[in-house]
């Protein structure tokens, strides 16, 4: 028995080695190495979950923490003197845990580039470039880079046109739609702003805060439209 069992174990171990080599040869999609995870206050949490093989779940939790950071009221000046100074790092944290978390790239970049309180397009560009590198087939990020280029040139009509074309993309974050609606509103294009908020109301059912905001804004815009053009 003992010799047969040992021979069987040796044979199976050899087969496991061959199968392991076959697996390695047929390229498994792998996550970025742990050394690329973003350092910061959540590092221990990210490492623990990654060590347990739960990268996607870790990215989901990081996403929730990003939303809470972005949705919270920041101190007027954080330690670096800028509002939302950790926004880029918080976004990179999500996408380094799961490079295919497409909405995180779009959300972080949209807030960094177009939120009036942030306005850091260069950081947005870094995030978008990483997103395009990891998701070459995902068109929304390329479109955002182009819109960012128009913004830098001060060509608002082209930028707005490009952003407008991304509205039907299911991965387009409500935040970006809200920014676009506010640009329309400030330019006195109330009908266009109304259409964008109605899009938020119709497509962002999971996004309770934006649903509420969309309802309020639709009322405001209706009142503005009654008053007449700007």
């Amino acid at each position: 028995m003992s010799r047969r069992a040992l021979a069987a174990a040796a044979l199976c171990a050899g087969m496991a080695l061959c199968a392991g080599a076959g697996l390695r040869a047929s390229s498994t999609p792998r996550f970025p190495p742990l050394s690329q995870l973003v350092r910061g206050p959540f590092q221990a949490q990210d490492l623990q979950l990654s060590a347990m093989g739960l990268r996607a779940a870790a990215a989901d939790i990081a996403w929730v923490q990003l939303l809470q950071y972005a949705g919270g009221e920041p101190a007027p000046t954080e330690e670096s003197g800028r509002r939302y100074s950790r926004l880029k790092d918080m976004t990179l944290r999500v996408v380094r845990l799961d490079p295919r978390f497409q909405r995180a790239y779009a959300f972080g970049a949209a807030m960094l580039a177009w939120d009036p309180e942030v306005q850091r397009p260069d950081e947005a560009l870094d995030i978008l470039q990483e997103g395009i590198r990891n998701n070459p087939d995902y068109g929304l990020l390329r479109l955002m880079v182009a819109a960012l280029a128009y913004k830098k040139q001060g060509d608002m009509p082209r930028m707005v046109g490009l952003l407008e074309s991304s509205l039907d993309d299911p991965a387009c974050p409500s935040l970006m739609k809200a920014i676009l609606a506010n640009i329309h509103k400030e330019r006195g294009e109330y009908a266009a702003a109304l259409a964008v908020w109605e899009n938020v109301l119709a497509n962002g059912r999971d996004d309770a805060s934006y649903q509420e905001r969309a309802r309020r804004q639709i009322d405001v815009i209706h009142r503005l439209m009654e008053k007449g053009p700007k």
Partner: peptide, 13 residues
């Protein structure tokens, strides 16, 4: 619920 538009992804993961 906290994941907003990524709710489905979070339930799956």
């Amino acid at each position: 619920v906290l994941a907003q538009q990524e709710r489905l992804r979070m339930i799956i993961d």
